[in-house]
Each structure stands twice: as structure tokens, then as C-alpha cells.
């Protein structure tokens, strides 16, 4: 659609160098935008971009459940700074993820996921609110787990704003760590490194970052984690034992500066393959299934939206009014 033929969107949109941008300040305004777009046949993501940068409310913190209700426009790093005086942190996400706004983190390729002790993946949000293409509100339960029907947050997480637009979420936090530890190990092989880390993760270890470098022939890895004093020591014992059982040993010093590259969601097989080829990687969000990796590792790039699976595309039918612009 040429600019001259663009229907007027009134005060809901402003023109920028990148094109038209709608920047609602409240969920209600966002709902209005959706109705206006539908009325005028304008497609979000194609004819007009949506910014939720003004949805920056950080509501009261639930100190018992360690949760906080946050607007979709809040940058995660900023949120972390906000949480620190309350003795909380958003926890170990990857550097690139921390620079994102909440909405981008939830809707984008990160799909709002993080690992938790035991190596499982769970959404950082325990509940979210969103607006669907018919302008209706979708709000999921704050219960820690549920069997009350399907998890409708799947319409938001990783869906690129094509099925619903997130406006805010209740995020799971963790205690701000008392101690931050880095320990280096040396492994005879990439497989030994992977075996040791996977076992630790399965037993409840929650590393924040792992730097692994196989350029010297052995895999030299620095593992960083942070928690309470007691937790750190329990984890240290577990980690040391798992490393030893996998054939590794302690190492004095390790390279701390990892490769700065696009983050990928990768499998452990991909990480092993990369290390077997004498490369260096940095790993974040270590779960039993996947990790977020920096370096020359195969995986799904997390800095851009790539094509959906055909199954995911089936859900585009939910945008009955065609407001969200169809497939990415």
C-alpha cells in the first residue's frame, strides 16, 4: 500500500523513518488501535509497526511468590535494576535477551523461555495479558501450574504478535544472589563436557553462563552461577563431582571473553559438534533439551523472526480479521 493510499489512523499512529508506528500507552489504547486497523483494513507488521514501548508500568512486587507484574514495554535489564533493591532478579537470561523489551522477549524467538533447576524450560511469565485480533482481552491465570484447559499463553509466546499482542505479564523472579561464582574445568572431549553439564543440570544445577573453548584440543570451560551461599556450595560440590566422573578436572584459569555473536537456540548435539570442531561457545539458559548459544553453533537464530513451522502457520487463522498481517 503506497503512503498516499494509506488510510488515516488518526492519533494512533505517527510517521517515522521506518514507516508508520502505533505507540499506544495503555492496553485500552492498544485495543482501540486494533479496532481501527480492522476497520480500515490496515495490517500490523506490514503496513504499520506497533511499539509497546510506552507500556512501561511495573506494578507492585509479590515478594512471597517472587513475581512482578510488568508492562510489555519494559526493558528486561531495566526491570532487573528495579528488582535489585527488592532483593530479586529476573535471573539468568542471555545478554541479548536482557536488552529486549518484555513484549519482544515473549513474542519473539526467545518465546519468553528460561531454564529452571532440574533443566526444565518454563516461561518467565507465570501469567500474561494480551489482546486478540477481535479486540478481546486474553488473561491467563497466575497459578504456578494449571490443568485448566490448554495453555493459552502459547498464542503469545514465540508467536511474533501474529496471534495476539501481549500487553503485560506477571514474571517469575528469583532471589538476588548472595554470591557469584566462576569455576574453570578442563575436559578431555566435547562429549565429556556435555555429559557433565547435562548431568548437573538434571540434578538441579542452574548455571547462568558457561564459556567453553576447545581450540587447545581439550575443552576448557568456565562455569558461572550465582545463588545463596549455601546453594552455591551445594552446586559447587555437584559440579565438581560430575566433572570428575565425566573425566574432567579443575583448571586454573579460563578465557572469560566469549564470542560475541548472534544468539541461537541450539541442541546439545550442536554444541558438542561445534566444540568437536575446535570452536569456542558461550552457553546460557542451559536446559536438558536446548541451550542459548553464542559462537559458531548451529541452531535457530534468536535475533530475527524466521519462518514458522507449517503447524504454527495453521494458527494464523485465529486472526480472523487479518489485523496482524499474516505469516512473518
Amino acid at each position: 500500500m503506497s503512503p498516499s493510499k494509506q488510510p488515516p489512523l488518526g492519533s494512533w499512529a505517527r510517521r517515522t523513518e521506518q514507516g508508520l508506528v502505533a505507540e499506544p500507552a495503555t492496553e485500552r489504547e492498544l485495543t482501540e488501535v486494533i479496532h481501527v486497523l480492522a476497520d480500515r483494513g490496515v495490517k500490523l507488521h506490514r503496513d504499520l509497526a506497533l511499539s509497546r514501548a510506552r507500556l512501561t508500568e511495573i506494578a507492585a512486587i509479590g515478594t512471597e511468590s517472587m513475581t512482578v507484574r510488568v508492562g510489555a514495554g519494559v526493558v528486561l535489564q531495566d526491570l532487573d535494576h528495579h528488582l535489585e533493591p527488592h532483593g530479586l532478579t529476573i535471573g539468568p537470561l542471555s545478554p541479548a535477551a536482557m536488552s529486549l523489551r518484555l513484549g519482544e522477549f515473549l513474542e519473539g524467538p526467545y518465546a519468553g523461555l528460561r531454564s529452571i533447576p532440574g533443566g526444565r524450560l518454563e516461561p518467565v511469565c507465570t501469567a500474561l495479558s494480551a489482546v486478540t485480533s477481535d479486540g478481546r482481552r486474553l488473561e491467563t491465570s497466575r497459578a504456578p501450574r494449571s490443568a485448566a484447559g490448554p495453555d493459552l499463553s502459547a498464542l503469545v509466546l514465540g508467536a511474533g504478535g501474529r496471534l495476539a499482542l501481549v500487553t503485560g505479564a506477571v514474571l517469575r523472579c528469583m532471589p538476588f544472589p548472595e554470591r557469584d561464582v566462576r569455576v574453570a574445568f578442563s575436559f578431555p572431549s566435547a562429549q565429556a563436557f556435555v555429559t557433565a553439564l547435562q548431568r548437573c543440570v538434571a540434578e538441579g544445577f542452574w548455571p547462568w553462563r558457561v564459556h567453553a573453548d576447545s581450540r587447545s584440543g581439550r575443552v576448557i570451560a568456565e562455569v558461572r552461577w550465582a545463588a545463596s551461599v549455601g546453594s552455591v556450595e551445594r552446586d559447587r560440590e555437584l559440579l565438581s563431582r560430575c566433572v570428575e566422573e565425566a573425566g574432567g578436572r579443575g583448571a586454573g584459569e579460563a578465557e572469560r571473553e566469549g564470542p560475541v555473536s548472534v544468539e541461537h537456540e541450539s541442541t546439545w548435539d550442536a554444541v558438542r559438534a561445534s566444540l568437536e570442531q575446535g570452536r569456542a561457545v558461550q552457553l546460557f539458559r542451559l536446559s536438558l533439551t536446548t541451550v542459548v548459544a553464542r559462537g559458531d553453533v548451529e541452531g535457530v537464530p534468536l535475533n530475527e523472526t524466521t519462518g514458522w513451522t507449517s503447524l504454527g502457520s495453521r494458527l494464523l487463522a485465529l486472526d480472523a480479521r487479518g489485523v496482524f498481517g499474516g505469516a512473518p
Binding site: A111, S146, G149, L157, W308, T309, G312, R314, L315
Partner: peptide, 19 residues
């Protein structure tokens, strides 16, 4: 349904719990 990693929404949480 695909295993992670993949791009786009995850159908599994929509189907799990659908009774």
C-alpha cells in the same frame, strides 16, 4: 509437533490440556 528449537508458536501447549 516439533521439538525445540523451532521458530514460531508452540502448538504443544495448546494441544496438551485440550481434553
Amino acid at each position: 509437533t516439533p521439538e525445540r528449537p523451532f521458530s514460531g508458536p508452540d502448538l504443544t501447549p495448546l494441544l496438551v490440556g485440550s481434553e
